[in-house]
Design a protein around this nucleic acid. Structure first.
Length: 174
DNA sequence: ACCCCGATCGTA
DNA sequence: ACGATCGGGGTT
């Protein structure tokens, strides 16, 4: 299949659509490649689990900006989380990359959101990076059929009230 | 200055 | 299911 970098129009769509369609895509960092096998959608201010429920501040301001930008934040005192911003500019949203299947030059565990950033050395240095213009980017690959996609509630957001039940986690069945 | 929380992870 | 862990955001 032809390799094609995902461009801004791909990301400038509703967050749930982007989260679903990122399944199966290749995440590329230099010579390292991993296939995205798990994502979560974080929506706008109405989503009580999303960082967009807060006013735009130092940590979360990227969520309110242009799509196709990497949003990397630090949590639990030890983990970085990799997200890609979605939606039209001014409308907040992001997709959390939660797990990768190693494809090339990946030496380490990429089976969780904290583990994959650790393995790939993704830190706040990549926060704000435009993935349509950089050596960290995503590539079109095989399409994943609905038959092998599983949706569940999101992980680690028990504080989010009714929003904790929304089935906004997407996985490829293995 | 201080307090408290967390988009996790490893172990059980 | 639960505890470890600790940076940093929000507030004082």
């Amino acid at each position: 299949m032809k390799k094609t970098r995902l461009e801004r129009p791909f990301y400038s769509r509703p967050t749930l659509v982007v989260a679903r369609e990122l399944l199966g895509k290749y995440l590329i960092i230099g010579n390292q490649i991993g296939q995205i096998i798990e994502t979560e959608a974080y929506l706008g201010p109405e989503d009580r689990a999303s960082h967009a429920r807060f006013k735009s501040r130092k940590r979360n301001y990227l969520m309110f900006g242009q799509a196709g930008i990497a949003y990397v934040y630090f949590t639990y005192g030890m983990y970085h989380m990799l997200n890609i911003i979605t939606e039209k500019e001014g409308q907040p949203g992001a997709v959390l990359i939660r797990a990768l299947k190693p494809i090339q030059n990946i030496d380490g565990d990429t089976s969780g959101p904290g583990k994959l950033t650790r393995t790939l050395n993704i830190t706040k240095l990549q926060n704000g990076l435009d993935v349509t213009q950089n050596s960290l980017y995503l590539e079109k690959w095989e399409d994943i059929s609905n038959a092998v996609v599983l949706t569940t509630p999101r992980i680690g957001i028990d504080y989010a009230g009714a929003d904790k039940n929304n089935p906004w986690r997407f996985l490829i069945k293995s």
